[in-house]
Simulated scan of single mutants.
Amino acid sequence: MNTSTKLTVVLLLVVVSITSLKAQDGLLQQKNWLAANSSSDLLKASYASNTSWEEKQAMVSEEWQPTPAPAPHIDKYYPRRGTDNFINVYVGLNNYLEDDKIPSSNSLYSLDPINSWYLGLNLDNVTHVLGPLYLDWGFGFSWQEYGYQNTRTRIDKGDNSITFYEEMDISGRKSKMTVSYLNVHMVPTFSFGRYRSFRVGFGMFAGYRIYSQVKYKYDDVDGNKQKDKYKDNYYINQFRYGFRGTIGWDFFDLFFNYEITELFEDDVTAPRLNPISFGVIF
């Protein structure tokens, strides 16, 4: 099961759980109403011996109405006091900077932005500090794919070195590196106003690498489709940290991550790359 499929399954389970809870809440409200109104003239009439089952149900349904859920507002996201928590999904794109610039398209490790996805699942919290100041903090997982623009790009892990080279005798279809992390973040945020408010935050995040691999899809010299997958650390930094910025309005939020630590370990001969990620928070 690939990363996208896993995330889809998680989201479906969350939706099913919410739907089930809403249905159970409706049944509980109806049960409580029946208990509170068991002596009412309407209820007695609805259960008279000469009343059919369909008529009983119709009379009860007309009398009982579920309590409407409160309309969503910004206080559920940025509370007046205390802490509110929720599950967020992060969807975006990855790239990296080399000497403060995106690598040239002629480079073997330059990325195809459309095939370099960032997917995250977080338990996020917002704590009111003072006035418009809040602390956005939380933890979660992220899956980051670095899809190389040259689909014949290969990675060679040598003795304390990482080398990118091009495999010439194939027809490449996909070449990518995938890295997953366990992350934490703390972002001081200003929220201006109670309802549909504009907000902006800037803080730090850190991560611990838990998985990494490279994957190649290609046609060999005989035209047969092949797929290779290699799991290894590839001298990717075990720990990372960097800056995180967020900006939002109403239910819409954007995030931007810049890693101070480089992708590969400092004492390894490898390209010096600082990953960046940006996207939407759902």
Rank of each mutant, 00 (worst) to 15 (best):
K76M: 14
P79V: 07
R80I: 12
D84H: 10
N85W: 13
I87W: 03
V89F: 14
V89A: 11
Y90S: 00
Y90K: 00
V91P: 00
V91R: 03
G92K: 02
G92M: 04
G92P: 00
G92E: 04
G92C: 05
L93P: 03
N94Y: 01
Y96T: 05
E98I: 08
D99W: 04
D100E: 13
K101C: 06
I102F: 01
P103E: 06
P103I: 02
S104K: 10
S105Y: 12
N106A: 14
S107T: 14
S107C: 10
L108C: 09
S110Y: 08
L111I: 03
P113D: 08
P113G: 10
P113C: 11
N115I: 07
N115W: 06
S116G: 06
S116Q: 05
W117I: 12
W117K: 09
W117V: 09
Y118I: 00
Y118H: 06
Y118V: 04
G120Q: 03
G120A: 07
G120Y: 00
L121S: 06
N122P: 04
L123C: 12
L123S: 13
L123F: 14
D124R: 07
D124N: 14
D124W: 02
V126T: 05
G131N: 13
P132I: 10
L133K: 11
Y134S: 06
G138Q: 07
G138Y: 02
F139L: 12
F139T: 05
F139R: 05
G140T: 13
S142D: 08
E145Q: 15
E145Y: 05
Y146S: 00
G147P: 01
Y148V: 03
Y148P: 01
N150M: 08
R152T: 11
R152Y: 09
T153A: 02
T153Q: 01
